[in-house]
Design a protein around this nucleic acid. Structure first.
Lengths: 331, 331
DNA sequence: GCAGGTAGCGAAATCGTTTTCGGAAGTGCC
DNA sequence: GGCACTTCCGAAAACGATTTCGCTACCTGC
């Protein structure tokens, strides 16, 4: 049994109320007793029971983030997000908790929220369905969506500028002379994928290059899933001189496949990624990519949840954060 | 305000006790009222307040895992562990929570444990000091150490067989004819690193190959930290024909550096990793490695915490799990 | 000396559950 | 009818903190 408030009270022959007030900085307690209490608390390694505290105060000062670990991409992305999110929640006096979902059952998320385990929740793009969002709205439970734009003015979200990022990549590739540029997209029809594709198409149009559908291929995010599409592109004659991958992890596959085929990156084929994950440093050359402001996204997302907690009436915010092209060698 | 037990009670004109008993499967409630209660609970989206419940029951059915995300390795390793850990905790009726530590302050871990936020905790090798362990023992708080052997019969731990893994790698390399085998180790003096080094040295001795200290180099786990040691090894004449890296992530750097120098893997230099992380699939050829039973480690670690929760008097267990050499092309 | 103020403390209610205990009503048996 | 059981339900006490409110001293100023 850990020591409780009452333990301290008994030991010092004080009432629990006084001890509580001493620990919580109330002014109606003399500095003498305050010191006594603080010393005793330290000696006994006192830590208030979070259950009791949460129950009485009606909040937990915890923010949840739900994680599905089946995708390597998610883990990698999250590890970029977390430092910023943790720092910001620390500053807000909250703690950030990561919940692990079994087989991505969104019901668990609602359970945790309704049970009052957390005050607010961050929704990662792949981890919810529209029913979850509806339920959260109905419960008036604070949440923010990360990485996907939700066309509903009641929900806050933070997304990187997918369109502009792709334009930046394309403009760079076009500027250095590429004309046959392949584009790898993902099968899911999300606003993110659409924005990227649109960036690609608009850039081509602006450069007055005709769209060639054989240069647009699909790829998934599992390990090795970038290999086959790359081979498919290499089979074209002439093959593209640049490949714009949907993600850094895909770009890794692309580079490996090209090098295995005896081609040099970027001399023979330039390759670009997207996101700016750490995986981009695990190839030689390193991957030229669009760096998402990962830490900043983490910060903003927590900040928005926190604002919502402080002023429940505040309107939802939909933020697009600027991204930046970083050239690291592969293009 | 979410609906509470009392809400249901009022609506059905029952007492809170009866409602609680109906929901918790007590036998002294008629099947009629039980059904009424269950239906009402469903209609109102009732979810018991976890704070109230935890407070009253004196436990939370939650297990904590503390995470420090500064190291890519940790994230990668953890994502291998988690599926098993989550599944097992699910089966035990517990929930697995991941806590994010700011700047790796072990005091936070003790706070969370003492506050009763979780019933037990899993310590990842890099996230504690001996003081934390002492404090947990003193508090009699259930915990299990993962990935590092602790020479103390009061603490349970689960570790892969580092020594045997390295022997397996070495035996394979020796069997295919390698004689100049380099070894990359990490600067920290942990039992894991020592066991690996010993495996390397014993294998050499068994093959009657003299130890050459120039072939033993140190490397860290940050991105690119495998590059310099590899160049250092390539500067030797003759250079080693095989490189045994301390980790898959290091092996990635090694392979890239070798290929960038125009060498073929594994024809010119064979490379092996350790751990069996997903990163091993992101090179071509894929990395031959020692596969840790990651899922199994996750399972066992949760299982041990759970056993400790169910029978507090049970003795601590120190488990070494078998590892397996998997040849994927790089050696 | 007295009204009004302040400083310091404790009593008690409260948060939403769980769980023990006892009581009321009904049943079966002799 | 009386006795022992069973069945079903509610009252009430916890769990450990926070917070409101009121009470006692003591002080201050006139």
């Amino acid at each position: 049994m850990p020591t409780s408030l009452t333990d301290i009270a008994r030991r010092l022959e004080l009432s629990p109320s006084t001890v509580s007030k001493a620990l919580n900085g109330y002014r109606d307690v003399s500095s003498d007793t305050r010191e006594m209490v603080l010393r005793a608390a330290l000696e006994l390694d006192y830590q208030p029971s979070s259950a009791a505290r949460d129950l009485r105060r009606g909040r937990t000062d915890r923010i949840g983030l739900f994680l599905n670990t089946t995708l390597e991409y998610v883990v990698d992305y999250l590890s970029g997000i977390i430092p910023g999110a943790v720092r910001c929640s620390q500053e807000c006096g909250k703690r950030l908790l990561i919940y692990t979902l079994t087989d991505n059952d969104p019901g668990q998320l609602l359970q945790v929220c309704r049970a009052g385990e957390i005050d607010g929740v961050i929704l990662f793009s792949t981890h919810y369905d529209s029913h979850t969002i509806e339920a959260l709205l109905e419960d008036d439970f604070p949440f923010v969506v990360m990485g996907r734009y939700i066309p509903d003015e009641r929900v806050s979200c933070v997304v990187p500028d997918y369109y502009d990022g792709t334009r930046q990549i394309m403009d760079h590739l076009l500027a250095v002379g590429h004309r046959r540029i392949a584009f790898m997209t993902r099968p899911e029809l999300t606003t993110a994928n659409e924005a990227r594709l649109q960036g690609y198409l608009d850039a081509l149009a602006a450069a007055e290059i005709a769209r060639d559908d054989r240069l647009i291929v699909e790829t998934r995010l599992e390990p090795d899933s970038g290999v086959a599409p790359t081979r498919q592109l290499l089979a074209l004659t002439p093959h593209p001189t640049a490949i714009v991958a949907a993600h850094d992890l895909v770009a890794v596959d692309v580079i490996n496949t090209l090098q295995a085929a005896g081609l040099c990156v970027p001399q023979d084929v330039a390759v670009t990624g997207f996101d700016g994950l750490r995986a981009g440093f695990r190839t030689l050359p390193h991957i030229s990519t669009v760096q998402q402001p990962l830490e900043r996204i983490g910060e903003r997302v927590v900040e928005l949840v926190n604002r919502r907690l402080n002023e429940p009436a505040a309107p939802a915010v939909q933020e697009t954060l600027p991204v930046q092209l970083v050239l690291r060698g592969s293009a």
